[in-house]
């Protein structure tokens, strides 16, 4: 009670963020009731008729629903798995560089794509992998017929995972680099005296030292399995690859906003949020069990 005054200042600083959250996250939540209505904008929420779980039932009847859920999960899981591995490997490699400026330079360079929006990167990616692009030019030197990567159901998912990892691994590796600094240097000294080479040191000291962080980050990624990356896919996909790349978010966008099926869009979004929160809660429990870390 004594330092109530001090706290007031902190609350004041917190206020803009909270107000923002209330206006843009909490108040719109009342719109969730649309999921249980046949919502017609002209009639508004108060005037639209209630339809119970019809929207949810319909959602499961949509012939595409299986495909869309499968796409979402497959793409998201691949992104998490490949993204984690690449980030770790990169952090370990970077850690081995002894020239400080080179290390910082590399770190900055791979971090940069993270700041570009997909709207821009999509154009770059499209050009690199187009018929006239550099990739097909190189393939041409080896006498391979050009491949239209972005319009092929065989390639598109790999392209998504590849470009997503390329954009994000610099950012992802930062957290691993940070936890590498917390490994006791004494251990390395002792190991080298015992005659362990660099690779052995990495295997027996660095990796075990990194394990808690790896587990934590992976568990915290769990809720993302229903989030396959709307920005990226929306900017890169085209009707030809709907089969392998249409995810929940892009479907909701097309059906909910473009086709103006607000209730159905809300229902799909709500279901996603419910599964999402279950995953977050279980991830929290899991993280607590495995690494003794809790988010809340």
């Amino acid at each position: 009670m004594k330092n109530k005054k001090d706290q007031r200042a902190f609350h004041l600083m917190l206020a803009p963020g909270m107000i923002f959250l209330i206006i843009f996250s909490f108040i719109p939540m009342f719109g969730i009731v649309m999921a249980f209505q046949n919502y017609i904008p002209a009639k508004g929420i108060s005037g639209s008729s209630w339809v119970g779980l019809d929207n949810f039932k319909f959602m499961l009847q949509i012939p595409d629903s299986k495909q869309i859920f499968a796409n979402t999960i497959v793409i998201a899981v691949w992104k998490i798995v490949v993204g984690t591995i690449v980030s770790i490997v990169f952090a370990l490699l970077l850690n081995e560089i002894r020239v400080k400026t080179a290390k910082k330079f590399m770190q900055t360079v791979v971090y940069l794509p993270n700041f570009l929006s997909w709207a821009i990167l999509a154009t770059v990616v499209m050009n690199i992998f187009s018929y006239e692009g550099p990739v097909n030019a190189v393939l041409g030197w080896f006498g391979i017929d050009p491949v239209l990567f972005m319009a092929s159901n065989d390639w598109f998912r790999s392209m998504l995972v590849f470009t997503d990892v390329w954009k994000g691994f610099g950012y992802g590796s930062i957290i691993y680099l940070a936890s590498l600094t917390s490994v006791d240097p004494g251990l390395y000294e002792a190991a080298s005296i015992d005659g362990a080479n660099r690779f052995k040191q990495l295997w027996y000291i660095t990796l075990p030292g990194l394990m808690p962080t790896i587990l934590l980050v992976t568990t915290l990624n769990l809720p993302n399995v229903l989030n396959a990356g709307f920005d990226q896919i929306f900017n890169l996909y085209n009707p030809l690859v709907y089969e392998t790349a249409d995810i929940i978010d892009t479907y909701v966008y097309r059906v909910g906003l473009v086709e103006r099926q607000y209730s159905l869009g809300t229902a799909v979004g709500l279901l996603r949020s419910v599964v999402g929160i279950i995953l977050i809660l279980s991830a929290n429990k899991l993280a607590q069990k495995l690494t003794d870390y809790r988010i809340f």
């Binding site: 085209n238 009707p239 030809l240 709907y242 099926q261």
Partner: peptide, 23 residues
């Protein structure tokens, strides 16, 4: 239509592109 049309439209669009591009 509100419920079924988006799926049918998507199906139709995929049909055009897949047949035209020889898929």
């Amino acid at each position: 239509m509100p419920l079924k049309w988006p799926t049918l439209t998507k199906m139709e669009l995929e049909m055009y592109l897949k047949i035209i591009t020889g898929d």
